[in-house]
Amino acid sequence: MFNIFSPSKIFSITSRATKYVFAIFILIISVGLIEALFLSPKDYIQSDSVRIMYVHVPAAWISLGIFSLIALLSISILIFKNKTFSLIAKSLAPSGFIFSIIALVTGSIWGKPTWGTWWAWDARITSMLILGLFYLMYIVAWRVISPNNANKVTSIIAIIGVVNIPVIKFSVDWWSTLHQPSSINILSKSTIHHSMLVPLIIMTAAFALFSLLIFLMKYNTELIKIKNKGLDRL
């Protein structure tokens, strides 16, 4: 039922797509950085440290998004035993992990001048750290567990970890946290000025493209590994 996902067909596309994705990524990130660092205004209270947000928030969004995607793929891996999906999920993990680390580090750098502390064990920050640890577990499991069981074990890790995603999202609404609640709301009015929303959206697009790029590179490597083993199919 998933014939369109056959590795050889995919490889012919993904191996060529990398350079185009790279070119678009460079374009978008240049525009995004110029917007974020120079054209967008200072904040009325945080002044220039608001610019950290243009890296912090997209990084957090992307890391949450990628983990949800991995979990979704993992469910179908366990139910349909689809092995192409496990390759896709495996290749998605590194960029998600990098972005969860970036979100934590930039948050810490922002927290010191704003809150007066590098770290707080509040619900948002702790649950984000747990996401980082789940990414780490997921990636390590692919490396250390024997290839026969790795796709099962990693899928289970992803499915357990995905429970944490809504906890991260709603932690600021459910409990009192040091972290501020969400400024961008779909159902109610957003509390971020549009001049700051524009660079945020461009940077999110740039980071998404970066994830796609890392994913394609990783995925191609995985496909080449399989080819080198002399297997026609997975």
Partner: peptide, 8 residues
């Protein structure tokens, strides 16, 4: 910090 972001 609250959730409000705006220029001065």
């Amino acid at each position: 910090h609250d959730e409000n972001y705006m220029p001065p």
